[in-house]
Each structure stands twice: as structure tokens, then as C-alpha cells.
């Protein structure tokens, strides 16, 4: 039996849906970050671990913007 591979338009549609869900939940992912996260999940990365990574990266990014130094 042939496996059902997601076609390009279905993938794009799914990404648009996930992006809108992200916006409604105030998850803070733009399309670029979301695409990377989807691919990391496809590679088997645990979503809870990934969310921890994103929170830490945001903290560091905020400290960069504020000019404050965070020891990583």
C-alpha cells in the first residue's frame, strides 16, 4: 500500500493553520521559527524540550536588545 506523502499545498495550508493557532494562543512564533520547529519535531525533538529552548533563546535575545548581559 502506498504511503500518503503530504503534498506541497497541504503542507502550506497546514503551516498557515498552525501559524494562526500560534497567533491566537500568543505563542510568539513567526512563520520562519514555526517552520524550523516543525522540522525539528519531524526529526524527533521533544516539543517540551523545544519550548524550553525557545524560552531561553528569547530571554537571551531580550537581554541583547536591552543591553543587559545574561550569563548563559
Amino acid at each position: 500500500m502506498a504511503s500518503v506523502a503530504p503534498n506541497l499545498s497541504a503542507v502550506r495550508e497546514t503551516m498557515d493553520v498552525l501559524l494562526e493557532i500560534s497567533r491566537l494562543l500568543n505563542s510568539g512564533l513567526d512563520m520562519e521559527s514555526l517552520s524550523i520547529c516543525v522540522r525539528l519535531c519531524e526529526q524527533g525533538i521533544n516539543p517540551e524540550a523545544l519550548s524550553s529552548v525557545i524560552k531561553e533563546l528569547r530571554k537571551a535575545s531580550d537581554s541583547l536588545k536591552d543591553g543587559t548581559v545574561v550569563l548563559l
Binding site: 503530504p6 497546514t14 494562543l25 505563542s27 520547529c37 517540551e48 523545544l50
Partner: peptide, 16 residues
Amino acid sequence: GMLHETGAVLDLLVDL
């Protein structure tokens, strides 16, 4: 034909 990992991505969005 949707992405296989939508469940994991939804978990991520909920965490965030």
C-alpha cells in the same frame, strides 16, 4: 495529506 507531526507541534504551541 497533512503533516505527520501536527500533534507534536500543537504540544509546542500549547507550551508556548
